[in-house]
């Protein structure tokens, strides 16, 4: 019986090993192509989904920003309020309450003994006394020592002492009150 194959060009080198390699390579290439398409479609869909989600979020952000802008007066007030509270806190903390100084002054000497009193920016108090007798001076110094001992005063210093012809004594004192 005559062969039905009309191909006159017969394949050569068609060893079993070669044919096996050719078949395997064909299979690998087809699988690779399939995987490539699969991944490509997955990546494409993922990108589309993510881009759509990003667009939706951007639109939502714009809507929210518009609504926030409508509340801009409130935002301005709350920002100003917070700033003002911080400033007021700083201002309050920089003030010194001199109320506690006056009981100390009374404890050192009666009001009529004072000639002048100066408080400087560092909290040092300089006092000039005009006292009627040395006994009054002794009492005053004792009071200052007592107040220093109990921690109401610190750095107390006698800056001047002079006795006038009429028996009055002028006394200069500096100290830092513990307010």
């Amino acid at each position: 019986m005559e062969s039905a194959n009309i191909n006159l060009l017969k394949k050569t080198g068609g060893s079993a090993g070669f044919k096996d390699l050719e078949a395997r390579l064909r299979l690998i290439s087809l699988w690779s192509l399939g995987i490539l398409f699969g991944i490509g479609i997955t990546v494409g869909i993922s990108y589309f989904v993510i881009a759509s989600r990003a667009q939706a979020l951007n639109n939502e952000k714009v809507d929210l920003a518009v609504q926030i802008q409508a509340q801009s007066v409130k935002e301005g007030i709350i920002i100003s309020l917070k700033q003002r509270i911080v400033l007021a806190g700083k201002a309050l903390s920089s003030t010194t309450n001199w109320a506690k100084l006056f009981p100390l002054l009374t404890a050192i000497a009666p009001a009529e003994a004072y000639d002048s009193l100066t408080v400087d920016g560092t909290g040092h108090v300089a006092v000039q006394f005009k006292l009627g007798s040395v006994d009054a001076v002794v009492t005053l110094v004792k009071n200052v020592i007592d107040l220093s001992d109990n921690g109401s005063l610190r750095l107390s210093q006698l800056t001047s002492f002079s006795m006038l012809a009429d028996g009055t004594v002028q006394l200069g004192l500096t100290f830092v009150p513990m307010l």
Binding site: A88, L92, T95, E112, S116, L117, T118, V119, G121, K130
Partner: peptide, 14 residues
């Protein structure tokens, strides 16, 4: 409004 006393000087006329 908040005021701060920096320094002060008292004179006591007799």
């Amino acid at each position: 409004r908040i005021l701060r006393i920096r320094t002060f000087a008292i004179s006591f006329p007799k």
